[in-house]
Amino acid sequence: MTAAARAVRAISSADAAKPVVEVRNLGKRYGSQVEALRDINLDFPAGQLTSLLGPSGCGKTTLLKIIAGLLPATNGEVFVNGQKVTGPGPERAFVFQDFALLPWATVVRNAAFGLELRGVPVAEREKTARHYIDQVGLSGFENRYPHELSGGMRQRVGLARALAVNADVLLLDEPFSAVDEQNRRKFQEDLLKLRQVENKTLIFVTHSIEEAVYLSDRIVLLSPRPGRVSEVIEPRISRDRSPDQIRRDSAYLDTVETIWRGLRDYAD
């Protein structure tokens, strides 16, 4: 980490936070040949946004899906709030790379789907869903269908659905990779604003260095084949300025540069 990145100390709560998600000695193999992850040990502190960053094939999405309980680990374990993960749980909510919206359901029903599965009565779940649809900036679109929305708007629905179930931990799997560049930037800014309202722990998979540095409190760099933790970086960028100022901040630029130097060896 560069001197500049260390110098800018944010008023972050990092020092006090206790881990919500703990990953212990985690390994994952597909069949007998492919080793996707090896010996991962990580803590994810409460209220922080941690990015999992690395070249394609480093197993970052696999790690996220294991934390979500969507994939079983080959060895090691994951704890959420001290409880061992054996499958999906109510304290975790997933945001999918391809949005995973029901094409036959309106925005409201999609946003309320997590609650619907939990048996929450219609009126109540739609009220909650409408609240979060408004929060992600989609009011007025409640009765539209996913195919009528742009990629960015669809992912906002995915985010509203994850927020509506009121989980402590949001797991985001490359949420902006299918969203075009301008909308991605806007969405990133909105996500930062949203974090000030909702006190969530976010784990964020991305392959964009800029995105990781811009959004994260902590960045976990993974090396490929098998995926291992190669470095953990805390950008320490003050977020109380305008997006443009952040993107011109020397700490921001230096951190991007440092990570790029670490990752360029993996570029093919």
């Binding site: 979500a68 969507l70 029901l102």
Partner: peptide, 27 residues
């Protein structure tokens, strides 16, 4: 049926019955 929709249903704690009737059959 889209594997990601099925994963979505499981991640939001849908039961097998809910997965079949709310995701698989409509899709």
């Amino acid at each position: 049926v889209s594997p990601s929709l099925r994963a979505m249903c499981r991640s939001f704690l849908g039961s097998r019955r809910q997965e079949i009737f709310k995701v698989i059959l409509p899709d």
